[in-house]
């Protein structure tokens, strides 16, 4: 019981933190997974949203909603810019996209810091969300708890939109077979642009919502970019549920993981990612190792048997 009590908060926090990561990565999940654009400026768009939250938010609900609207609008605009910018290199593969979007990220990051300043920023949240609540005798930040709800809503909506709705079908079809979409009278280009605009709005909105947890600072963009890449790739490109599971796994690794295996803490994130990718790639190396181990074991048994 003590053990359970000691690990309850980290386990719960793993879920909440995973939900945060899911929301943080949502824009990239859509842009990369469904739009086919490896957007390395995703973290920068998130940071923009976070700075907007710090600038506009004053602790009232109204201003939080306003910040969310402004952040999402700014993110959507950046998504439109991205759509225009990648159009000429659309057929040149991910590496050229990486070069382009990384260039945008560097320029955008410089502009963000020049405009908003280099100082870490305070982010005011509504009073009701500011403190902590008591769960089974433990303190837990109210804002994070609320975040679980928001993220669940977003995941549900995303799943429904992408997998069940007509719009989602068009997006998926555009990725798979643009000619067919064009034959149906839809412009693949419009669908693609719309996908990137929505992805940008998600990234900007996530920045506004995540700002109270991940303080806006010059390093925010890099941190968020790395996390998002991990989640999107581990969760399989474009899969909403995959990204959700990957995000919660990463969240647990960084909370429950560091408590259970403190000595391995510095290695946990990338170690776990590596293992996840190996397991996931199916025909990968782990089954082969297992098979070889079985062969060795059989041989060893045979040798033993022969000796007896």
């Amino acid at each position: 019981m003590d053990w359970l009590d000691a690990h309850l908060i980290p386990a719960l926090d793993g879920v909440a933190y995973g939900m945060l990561l899911f929301v943080v990565a949502a824009g990239l999940t859509l842009a990369f997974g469904s739009g086919g654009v490896l957007n390395l400026a995703h973290g920068t768009v998130y940071a923009m949203g976070a700075y907007i939250a710090a600038d506009i938010g004053d602790g009232s609900w109204g201003m939080l909603v306003l910040a969310l609207a402004v952040g999402a609008a700014a993110g959507a605009t950046s998504g439109g810019v991205l759509a225009v910018a990648v159009a000429p290199v659309a057929r040149r593969g991910h590496l050229d996209q990486a070069l382009l979007t990384f260039g945008i990220a560097l320029v955008g990051g410089d502009m963000l810091v020049s405009y908003f300043g280099a100082d870490q920023r305070q982010v005011a949240v509504p009073k009701a969300l500011e403190d902590s609540v008591t769960i089974a005798g433990h303190q837990y930040p109210t804002y994070r708890l609320a975040f679980i709800g928001v993220a669940a809503l977003l995941a549900g909506l995303g799943y429904w939109l992408l997998v069940r709705s007509t719009a989602g079908a068009a997006v998926r079809a555009t990725t798979d077979d643009p000619e067919m979409v064009a034959a149906l009278g839809l412009s693949p280009r419009v669908v693609h642009t719309a996908t990137l605009v929505v992805a940008g709005a998600l990234a900007g909105g996530a920045g506004v919502l995540g700002a109270p947890i991940i303080t806006p600072s010059p390093e925010t963009a890099d941190t968020v970019m790395l996390w998002s890449l991990i989640i999107v790739v581990v969760g399989r490109l474009g899969s909403v549920l995959g990204a959700l599971f990957a995000a919660i796994a990463v969240g647990e690794v960084q909370t429950l993981g560091v408590v259970l295996a403190p000595d391995l803490a510095p290695y946990l994130l990338f170690g776990a990612m590596g293992i996840a990718l190996l397991v996931r790639s199916g025909s990968g190396i782990l089954p082969e190792f297992a098979a070889r181990a079985r062969v060795l074991a059989t041989r060893a048994r045979a040798l033993k048997g022969g000796g007896a």
Partner: peptide, 26 residues
Amino acid sequence: GIVVIRARGVVALMLTLAVGELTATA
């Protein structure tokens, strides 16, 4: 390499990233 050469594309990119980051951590 035993691990990395099995993957392709973005997965290879992320696996090599993991190798690099784990080495820096070490």
